[in-house]
Design a protein around this nucleic acid. Sequence first.
RNA 1: GGCCCCGUAGUUCAAUGGAUAGAACGGAAGUUUCCUAAACUUUAAAUGCAGGUUCGAUUCCUGCCGGGGCUACCA
Length: 502
Amino acid sequence: MQHQLKSITSRIVSQLYHQEILPEQVQVNIPPKDFPFDFTIVAFTFAKLAKKSPDQTANEIGAELIKEMPELDHYEVVKGFLNLRLKDAYWIGVFDAEVNNPLFGALPPTGKKVMVEYCGPNTNKPLHLGHLRNIFIGHSMASILKAAGHEVVKVNIYNDRGVHICKSMLAYQKYGNHETPESSGEKGDHLVGEYYVRFEQELRKQVSEIIAQGLTEEAAKKQAPLNKEISEMLLKWEKGDTEVRNLWQTLNQWVYQGFEETYRKIGNDFDKAYMESATYLLGKTIVAEGLERKFFFKKPDGSVWIDLTADGLDQKVLLRADGTSVYITQDLGTADVRFKEYAPDVMIYTVANEQDYHFKVLKLVCQKLGRPYANGIHHLSYGLVDLPTGRMKTREGTVVDADDLLDEMDLTAAQKTREVGKIENFSETEQLTLFHQLGLGALKFYILKVDPKKRIIFNPEESIDFHGFTGPFIQYTHARICSVLRKAAERSISGGRQCRHS
RNA sequence: GGCCCCGUAGUUCAAUGGAUAGAACGGAAGUUUCCUAAACUUUAAAUGCAGGUUCGAUUCCUGCCGGGGCUACCA
């Protein structure tokens, strides 16, 4: 209807005042709720063309509109705003058409393919609250784009190699005693995460011992035997050493299994997972290609750079002096692989705003290289999640673990539900399902109601609130609507629709 | 230092450049024969500061003040 209003109004204005007006230039608003009208056309912009007062212009447009549109009941002009009221029959028609449409609100197919990347965890520790915000944003963005008629591919990216991954591997090798998720009864990602922490602890011990002998912290870190062992392990990994690779495979499998369990818990799924271990080498060849084509340059020490000062940025390193790849190298390789596999029109990266700069660089580099997908790169940037006490810090142990949080939400939901009662007829399974629906709904809504680009201060107590503008309250409202429909059906009142649980 | 993001009731969040800045929680005052009292009704309460553009600015521009981030041969 808004489109129709725009195009008809633009034609009327063009005819009345002999000035070409495009439909997009017509502003159609919803009036404030006290006004008994459906739409408002803003006439100020046309008053200038008409060389008449806004009120007079609005009246002239209104008079023409009512001649042309049979759906229009009446209009009224207030201070240059042309308020329109449509006939009840029109709205009843809209309602009848939509009431039994299971795809209410969905748009027709656009033929466009959009890839949405989100989550992107390291494989050395469990998911935390920050990942949950990322996943909720990415997953809902994918759903929205799908409803908007696009073909959507949901992808994850695992940062599964590098120094930090070796840390948990080395600690496991040293102190693991062949412990497994089965033998310890721990979720795989949590188990591996413990060895990552263990490594950091042991390293700190070594460093402080060396500092006690009179060395600076920097020198101590370099000298620490554990750090040397890490470098050796990374080197072995890159060479494909069987033992190291097997260890890597084993630990990463445990982590993936742990992640999968968490994804299931929050109702998330991916169409495809990419591994940086599989694309970082390709990234290197892309850098070599750019170097050959003179888009990049090599410094005397052998490192490769791109000069983006003309674009308002700095010079950025693309390959280290020793020839190993950096963060962006992998992203270049991954982007190429994705385009080959899916040829998406748009690639959306759901990544926190601390990486705004990185994605500016990535897009620019792809543009310089003339990649066909370069202009379709879009960074869906979101704010970090802080706690009332400040930023989450691994070192200070203030990171909120995703699994712990989800369990806590369910427990609180259970507690609050039991207080109210009303679940006497529920089986054990039904109760658990309900608690989880409530707990997860509360958390998702609490996080998604905030503009993604704003940072969130996560307050555990508020997140689990069941009153006011919250997930559980919407669920409660849904339940009551279903109840009304059920009763209507019992009394054979027709015209309603089946209640759908979705 | 340079660049980017944020700043709205006591609190947590809304508002394609449009009319009287909306909700919720919390505060105050009420509602029991009626759809689930996990509810409802009424009420007080806010655009960081100073300019500019505009018929009109929470929104766009400039400066300042506050908060955060980036500016690594970490990822």
